[in-house]
Each structure stands twice: as C-alpha cells, then as structure tokens.
Design a protein around this nucleic acid. Structure first.
Length: 575
DNA sequence: GCCGTTTTCGGCCCGACTGTTTTCAGTCG
C-alpha cells in the first residue's frame, strides 16, 4: 500500500476514534500522522526497510507499526475492528452542520440511531429535541442540514468563489465604517477549491458592517448575526463568514483567519518558543497573560519579522516547509502574473474551441502577450473534432501567413494537442509532428487502464523526440472526476530524464499537475509551462489561476517556460 | 498517541457563537 492510501486510513481511524469518544489527543495524533505521511518526500519503502519511521517527528512507535503493517500487508486488524464497531451512518452524519462527534454519539447511544434516515425519522417525531444538550432549534437545524447536505456539502472551485467574493470585498471596502478589509481563508491561500468565503474587516463600528453584509441581495439565509461575526448562505450554496475586529487587531486576525490551520499551529509554537503567545487578538508576553503586547505591528510583514521570519506569501502557508524557509531567508521570489509572456495550450474553432484563430490572437494581444500557442486536438479525439494531418498542416500554413501579415503584435505559434493512444504511441506520425513548433501530448481516452499501464503509456509518449510537454497529467476534473491511475513520481522522473515539460493546466476545473508536487519536481529539474487550455477568448484569463497554483507550488519565474521572451522560447523548441 | 537537553508524566493552539443552560458544552475554524 502506498503512503497516500495509508494516510487515508490513518485519517479514517482518527475520525472513527472521535466518533467513539476517545481521547481527543489520540485521534489528533492519527490526523497529524496522516498529514505527515502525505507530505513525505522520502520513499516510504526505504524508511520502512531501514526502520527509520519513528525518527520522523509526530510518528511514534504505535503509528510506525501500523504504517509498516499497512505498507507490507495492505491490512490492519486494528482498523478493521474499528470500522466494524462504528456504523457507517455515523460517519456520514459528520457532514450535517451542527452535528459533531459528541452529539452524534449521544444520538447513537440514547436512541440507537445509526443512519441518516433514522435520524430524520427521530426528528419528525420530535425525539431529538428532547435529548440532553439538544433542543427545538438543534432539531430544526439537523432537519435543514439533512435536506441541504447534497447541495451545501460540496466545495467550490476557487475561480468561481473568487468571482463571488470580489464584489463583496469591494463593497465592504467602500463602507464608511470600514478601515481595512480583506478576504482570508483558503480563498486567500489560493487553494484549488474553497469551502466557504472568509471576510475580515477592521472597524471600530461593527454594527453597520454586519447589517450591510447580512442584508446583501445575494444572501439566501443568515445563519449567524453577532457583534463580531456573521455567517450567511449565499444563493448557489456558498457560505460566507464576516468577522469585524478592532483596527489594531486586524493584522493578527488576518494572519489567523488566512491559515492554514497547520501553518498557524507552527506559528504559535514558534511564538511560544520566543516567549510569546500568539492569537488572533495579538501577541501576549506569555501564555496566560492578560496584557497584549504594545508592539506597533501593522502588516503581516512586521508580524513575521517580529518572529524573526521573512514574509511568507499566503499561498505558501500550508506547513509545507515555509517556516523553515522563512527562517533562513529562503522563501523564493515566486512567479507573478506579470511575468507571463504567452501560453501554449489553447483551442480554436478548428477543433472544439469557441473562438477563431484570429479572435484568439486578438485577445492575446489585448493581454499584452508576446506569443500565443495554438494546440488543437488531434484526429483520435473525434468527440472534440480533432484535426486530421491535412487540417493540421493547413492550420500551420494559416498561422504562418497570419504572422507574416503583421496584423497582430502577438506572434502565433503552431502546436498540437496530440492524443496519447492507449499504447503510448502518438496520434500523428513523426513526419507530421516535425512540422509544428511544439507538441503537447495528452490522454483523452481509455482512462481505465491500470496504474502500471497508464504510467508506461505516458512515459512512452514522453520518450518520443517530438514531444515538448505533457498536458493535464492526471486528467482530474475537480469536484467531478478522480485522476486516472498513474504513478506521478515516475512520470516526473521520466519527464526530467527526457528533457520534457509538464504543463500546469490552468483551467480552474483541472489545476493539474497538483501544486503539492511542483516544489520537489522543480528541484529535480522539471520545467513548467502554465497553460490555460482555453476554449474561448475569456478562457485565456485562466492563466491567472495557473499562476496561483504555480505560486502555491513554490515556483519561480525561471522554472516556467512561458516567462521567457519569444526568442528564447523558439530556441527551446528547436533544441 | 506523541513529545521531552529542566520533564518518561502531563501536557497537547485557542477563541467566538449557538443553544442549551443557569455557568457551560459542543461545534467550528
């Protein structure tokens, strides 16, 4: 069993222990164990073989033994027994807002309820309201929670959440009572998906701010309306929280509510080591002290500096080594949107795009790009109106003529998004591929191969001398389709060995390859290309989502091909 | 269940809101 699968089991164990009412620090140990495993750089097999698991901070004897057992045998009796002892319905109930492990345990222990259906029935009979610690309101909340579980339970794409958040933030900033306003949470950290929107405001007069927020036209339900915090449900199911804090607290609260939780834990630990207690309220000389430190800290930069750290951009605050880097002046200068000089993977009406070659060229010019690559589908992608050899060569000629005409300042590059056939062969022959500027190779069919088959298929495509870059590595569609089975590390290694690029597909539903892999991949020498995979002129703007993810992946300008000027890009293609 | 160079036991980040209570537990982030 690989480390991610094992991590999944450890998280599940944590959940089950919580439902059983175990010592909270015990299940937290499992939770943290799962996370540690996921972010492990070293080969798990090696760590197990050399008995070095316990040398990792957070992994003790008990966890090490369980990890080792799962790794070697794919089985764990402890886990199996635990699963058998907790009805699956109880786990599902955690999705219902207002129901946590303790209350679920009460419902189960007193009424014997073990499915959501039975919970619904008990609510209908009014039995839940009579339980100790429950009441009429909690019962109503549970009924609503069950009803909305489907619609509200899911996360939202960062791009769409950001579009909703933008006008709200602008509205907050325009209020007279508001001194400062920012969004926080996973939205500010540029996570690929967002659970809810967090807004933070500095004001000494919270009431009108709260009233404005809860009174927004797009609010379908007000779930909390307090003096410092309000929560609303927006049309479309997105939840939004607003916190209003006194101006001198703003920086601390912004840092706290930006998270991530794991990053905050590390920051608080660091503060404690330096003799301070850090909370969203500010810094105290020591834990337990009432008095806030009278330091003049007005920006996050100053807060980090107080803890002897360089500024850590919000995108990096995932406890992925950013604290250590900030300690040693090793936070990289991350790529910025303005560094992008063009993109390579885009479609036109020749295949399944919605805008013509010229419309795309014109839109790229508006974006100020030096070059725009066109990579329409190849013939095997029949469903996407893939180009035949003949049509591709015709397009190459069109592009050549358009460039010669000088009509657009943006130079068009001719490429292809060539299908990787199930065998790993490419959809076009070498002689055809030799006639385009570059080749993006992608998988669009037969997703169901085994991990070994899929990995070998992709590696074979990377070994083709005409291949320039690999498109959307895993084929995942966020919130909709899981990645296909493949060994990411092997593919990264093959790309490096063959001098090939892996694309960062910037389509907000893909954001593939995942940001968690980029830092170590780039350290191994992998070159990135940020591609919007645009099917419309508006879709070109997705490159911004790609830059976000590149930043989350610690990438700098020089690790990304499309930050380079046209001449260098052409030079790279004709190596 | 993990950790520790004062510690092998006694901690483990912490505060707001809600709904239930009548001083607080559970949930959430």
């Amino acid at each position: 069993m690989d480390k991610n699968a094992i991590a999944g089991i450890l998280s599940e164990i944590a959940l089950l222990l919580e439902l059983k009412g175990e010592n909270p620090f015990k299940f937290r140990a499992y939770q943290s164990g799962a996370r540690i495993l996921e972010s492990l750089e070293e080969d798990l097999a090696m760590l197990v073989a050399e008995g070095r698991l316990t040398s990792i901070k957070g992994i003790g004897k008990a966890l090490a033994l369980k990890i080792e057992t799962l790794h070697k045998t794919d089985q764990l009796e402890y886990y199996d027994n635990l699963v058998d002892s907790v009805p699956p319905g109880l786990v599902e109930m955690l999705d219902i807002p207002g129901l946590g492990a303790k209350k679920i345990k009460v419902v189960h222990d007193t009424l014997g309820i073990d499915t959501i259906e039975k919970l619904q029935e008990a609510c209908d009979k009014g039995q839940i309201a009579d339980l100790p610690g429950f009441g009429q309101k909690s019962q109503e909340k549970i009924v609503a929670g069950i009803k909305n579980r489907e619609a509200y339970g899911k996360r939202h794409l960062w791009w769409s959440a950001f579009e909703v958040a933008g006008p709200i933030l602008a509205g907050l900033k325009a209020l007279p009572a508001v001194e400062r306003a920012e969004h926080a949470g996973s939205l500010r950290r540029r996570m690929e998906t967002v659970g809810d929107l967090d807004f933070l405001v500095a004001s000494s007069d919270p009431q009108p701010v709260m009233d404005w927020f809860t009174g927004l036209d797009s609010v379908s339900e007000v779930t909390a309306h307090g003096e410092t915090k309000s929560s609303v449900r927006l049309e479309g199911g997105l939840q939004a929280d607003l916190r209003v804090v006194p101006p001198r607290q703003f920086v601390f609260a912004l840092h706290h509510f930006t998270g991530s939780k794991d990053h905050n834990v590390r920051m608080r630990q660091r503060a404690l080591q330096n003799g301070f207690s850090l909370t969203e309220w500010g810094l105290r000389p020591e834990s337990g002290s009432e008095e806030l430190l009278e330091e003049n800290i007005e920006s996050e930069t100053e807060l980090f500096r107080f803890l002897e750290l360089d500024f850590i951009p919000p995108e990096l605050r995932e406890d992925f080594g950013e604290i250590e880097a900030a300690e040693n002046n090793r936070i990289p200068h991350l790529v910025e949107a303005s560094d992008i000089r063009g993109v390579f993977h885009n479609h036109t009406t020749a295949s399944d795009g919605h805008n013509t070659l010229e419309e795309m060229a014109s839109a790229a010019q508006v974006l100020g790009w030096e070059y725009l690559g066109i990579a329409d589908h190849s013939k095997a992608s029949f469903q996407a109106n893939g180009l035949s050899e003949e049509r591709l060569l015709k397009q190459v000629e069109e592009i050549r003529q358009l460039n010669e005409s000088g009509k657009y300042q943006t130079r068009l590059l001719s490429g292809t998004e060539c299908d990787i056939l199930p065998t790993g062969e490419l959809d076009f022959s070498d002689s055809v591929l030799a006639q385009v500027d570059y080749v993006v190779v992608s998988i669009h069919s037969v997703f169901s191969q085994s991990e070994d088959e899929m990995t070998a298929r992709i590696i074979r495509a990377l070994e083709n001398p005409h291949t320039t870059m690999l498109g959307h590595l895993t084929g995942r569609i966020l919130l909709r389709r899981e990645p296909y089975n493949l060994n990411r590390q092997k593919i990264i290694e093959a790309a490096v060995a063959n001098g090939k690029i892996i694309e960062l597909n910037a389509n907000p539903s893909r954001l593939d390859m995942d940001w968690r892999l980029w830092r170590s991949a780039a350290e191994k020498g992998l070159l990135c290309a940020i591609n919007p995979d645009a099917h419309t002129t508006e879709g070109l703007r997705y490159y911004l989502a790609g830059v976000n993810i590149a930043r989350k992946g610690w990438l700098t300008k020089d690790q990304i091909l499309n930050t380079r000027p046209l001449e260098q890009v052409l030079g790279y293609f004709s190596r």
